[in-house]
Amino acid sequence: MLRRTILKTAAAMALAAATGTTAFAQTNGPVDYVIPFGPGGESDISARLQQPFFKEKFGQDLVISYKPGGGGAVGWASLNGLNSNGQTIMGVNLPHIIIKPAQKDVGFKTEELNTFYMFHYTPDAIVVKADSPYKTLKDLVDDAKANPGQVTMSGSGKASANHLAQIKFDKMTGGKTTYVPFKGTGASTTAMLGGQVKAQWGYSTVGAKQGDAVRMLAVAMEERHPLFPDVPTFKELGYEMVGGAYRGIALPNTASAETTKKWSDMIGEINNDPAFRQKMLDGGFALLDVDSAGMADFMKARTEEYLKDAREAGLIK
């Protein structure tokens, strides 16, 4: 009896070791996944969604920790000093990593960050309360033209995706809205729901979270989001706006090309899992697949676009 138990245990251990080695070929022990913001934001939630899939596919824990401060700058400034053996990765966000270094010296430069995968973006969206008088985007634009400055819109922070979108949109419509910055999307949503502002420059994720309590007037995507078949895109309504806040993951820039490639493949594998895609879509995210090979081109295009917008908006010189 005892012998059998021992045998069984040994077999189980051998099996564990065998499966273990395949996993260990990928990573060696738990991986530290640093989010340079506090908990509860879109960066945190999308990382949390990746967490169980990583464990399932590669057998290792993805340990999420927060390193907030300076609108992400504290985390990114420390990234290249971290261990480059592939056990530490960090979330990166656009337009933050482009705009911040262009404004002032924040301890890192855009091109110094070794971003290896961009896995999703949250499309810009104009969100209003369910009982708002703005039934369509046209209502809001008309009001902004008729009463310049009176239409207050909340958003997350200044020189952020929301702020750039607001400036760009005002320029397109010729109307004038007032941007009220809040600390994070959660706070800006609360202000919109509480009627402190008339509308919100948010993301499609706000619509997914708040459901019937809000109405989205338009989303900045090429095509309609599968979760909101009734919400038009800005393009449909005649405004050339596609974009939002992009999120990816980076390694320290001392990491080998091999490690970078390996990580790019791993995150790509998670991103191609249908169950993961479904969860992301349910959360209102829009998926993106820019791997390490395509990163340089992607970043170049984005950088040009964001810097142009920010310069026109007077946010950078």
């Binding site: 509860g40 959660g186 729901l193 708040q210």
Partner: peptide, 14 residues
């Protein structure tokens, strides 16, 4: 409301 009242709530919400 789906709005975290405190930071730990934000983690729990996630």
């Amino acid at each position: 409301l789906g709005i975290p009242g405190t930071p730990p709530d934000a983690v729990i919400l996630g």
